[in-house]
């Protein structure tokens, strides 16, 4: 599904993140954990072939990342989008079908059906006709998730899907992600929420300029590893847990 070996990624020849070794199988969930500016978004963009791989070997679905885009879904951060843009939730989800529809032909019944099903899955079927900008932050995030689902990807990438998201939407998103992986979709998401990483992921990858650790949550989210990744921002509590201060 995903194979990174000794990979460095970055812009204009300058690496942002180095030493990435990852493999991911169908139906597995990978959480990229690290502070802001650690290179999480850059790594996700490299999986889409939008940021070049400077070193090492990278394959997505057995192909070069840029050539696998038609099988890869991407959920961007909602705050990058203009809330005043005149589109409805259903129109946003339909964008996930555009590459299938092509340039000329109008949307078919199958496309509209996929849009309805995706909105239904994220629990927003009743908001289909609502203007995107009138939805809450969490609902917008769910609409973008529905857009990625409508494209029927084998690999789904989510960039900080829980930023500025209310509890209801977070629960809805977590439920959908579990359902999707149960049907074989592989998942990569970036987060700085250790609880989410621990609860959701099969593999956790700690990054900050380089990959510091990767593996199952129980053996990876250790105090030592968090200290390596977050430096002085990782504080040990008396009960043995580690918390992050202003990461």
């Amino acid at each position: 599904m995903l194979g990174y070996a000794g990979v460095s990624v970055g812009y204009q020849g300058r690496p942002v993140l180095t030493g990435v070794d990852l493999t991911l199988e169908a139906g597995q969930r990978l959480a990229l954990v690290g502070p802001n500016g650690a290179g999480k978004s850059t790594l996700i963009k490299s999986l889409l072939g939008l940021v070049p791989v400077l070193d090492g070997t990278a394959t997505v679905l057995g192909r070069a990342p840029a050539e696998a885009r038609d099988q890869v879904g991407y959920v961007p951060q909602t705050d990058a989008l203009d809330a005043g843009f005149p589109v409805t939730a259903a129109q946003v989800v339909m964008m996930g079908r555009y590459r299938r529809i092509g340039w000329w032909r109008p949307a078919r019944g199958a496309d509209r059906q996929a849009v309805r099903a995706a909105l239904d899955l994220v629990g927003l079927a009743d908001r289909a006709g609502k203007h995107f900008g009138t939805l809450s932050g969490g609902q917008r995030q769910r609409v973008l998730l529905a857009r990625a689902i409508a494209a029927e990807p084998k690999l789904l990438l989510l960039d900080e899907p829980f930023n500025g998201v209310d509890v209801v939407s977070q629960e809805a998103i977590l439920r959908v992600l579990r359902e999707l992986t149960a049907t074989g979709t592989a998942l990569v998401l970036s987060t700085h929420d250790l609880t989410v990483a621990r609860d959701l992921a099969d593999i956790v990858c700690l990054v900050n300029g380089r990959q510091w650790a990767a593996g199952p949550p129980a053996t990876t989210l250790t105090t030592d590893n968090l200290r390596l990744t977050y430096g002085g921002h990782a504080i040990d509590l008396a009960d043995g847990r580690t918390v992050l201060v202003d990461p």
Binding site: L50, R69, Y74, P76, A80, V87, G96, Y98
Partner: peptide
């Protein structure tokens, strides 16, 4: 592209 340049690029 106007709505979501990153999403459009990701879609190919």
């Amino acid at each position: 592209r106007a709505f979501d340049p990153a999403g459009a690029a990701a879609a190919g």
